[in-house]
């Protein structure tokens, strides 16, 4: 059986909030290392890869592989009943029909308990090859969101160019064009403000802003975001959480002229 206790419900609330507009029905695949999810959006352009490591829970118990088939709209309805600071416990049997969720207020004066009906989801998993990306950019997640939102107002697509001079986000729309160039920032006192660019070769790729703006809903999970880019392969946008857990988004590029 699965028993997983989170000190603060907000971790799961934020994760589900960040992905529910991209994927609807998906399996939480549980085993002794944690809870994983891999799901593509309907258009097969974007992929969500979530890993909530056992270390992010206290305690975490899951002695065999359990697939928890969830509708994220339904899960959201239940999670809305949890306060951010509540202690959240997930429980499920080995071949579960339902997921049991309890929310305890931190001063223990209220315990809410819900059972959510599960679905049988036959999910198609993709093998994601290990890639040595040509460019890895680490930046404040709020900055990335601002860039994507600002450019979305002008165009459907953004071209991300990483070179030795920095990283440039450029768009071309009906009303005109615009670009934002970022250079390395080293803020010793506030490391989360850093912009780090690791580059092995220059890259230039175009992506749909609609999906990038959607990924930015994960902003609350982490103060920094990492973009991994190589020519002609999907972009990886990564939000890291405590305990080695992460939320990753992959986005297929736009190609050709």
């Amino acid at each position: 059986m699965l028993e997983a206790r989170l000190e603060q419900a907000q971790l799961l609330k934020k994760v589900v909030d960040a992905i529910k507009d991209l994927v609807q029905d998906c399996n939480f695949d549980c085993n002794d290392s944690g809870i994983a999810l891999q799901a593509m959006d309907n258009s097969h352009v974007a992929l969500v890869s979530m890993m909530l490591k056992a270390e992010s829970f206290n305690p975490f118990r899951c002695d065999r592989n359990i697939a928890i088939g969830l509708n994220l709209v339904s899960l959201t309805k239940v999670l809305r009943a949890a306060q951010n600071e509540d202690i959240l416990t997930l429980k499920a049997e080995d071949a579960p029909d339902s997921l049991n969720l309890t929310f305890e207020s931190s001063d223990k004066d209220r315990i809410s308990e819900y059972d959510l009906k599960l679905m049988d989801i036959d999910q198609e998993h993709l093998g994601i090859p290990d890639t040595d990306y040509s460019a890895t950019i680490s930046m404040p997640s709020a900055e990335f969101k601002r860039i994507c939102t600002d450019l979305m107002a002008m165009s459907e697509s953004v071209t991300i160019e990483a070179g030795k001079d920095g990283i440039k986000f450029a768009c071309n729309g009906d009303i005109g064009n615009g670009s934002i160039t970022l250079r390395t920032v080293q803020d010793v006192e506030n490391k989360e403000n850093n912009i780090e660019i690791a580059l092995t070769e220059p890259v230039s790729l175009t992506f749909s802003l609609k999906y990038l703006v959607n990924f930015c809903k994960a902003q609350n999970l982490s103060k920094t975001v990492k973009l991994h880019i190589s020519n002609e392969v999907p972009l990886l946008v990564e939000y890291a959480m405590e305990g080695g857990s992460y939320l990753r988004f992959y986005l297929a590029p736009k190609i050709g002229d």
Partner: peptide
């Protein structure tokens, strides 16, 4: 004009 690719082009079935 560039066209949108899908992930199946890059990521295989495991």
């Amino acid at each position: 004009k560039s066209s949108q690719t899908t992930l199946g082009k890059f990521f295989g079935k495991p």
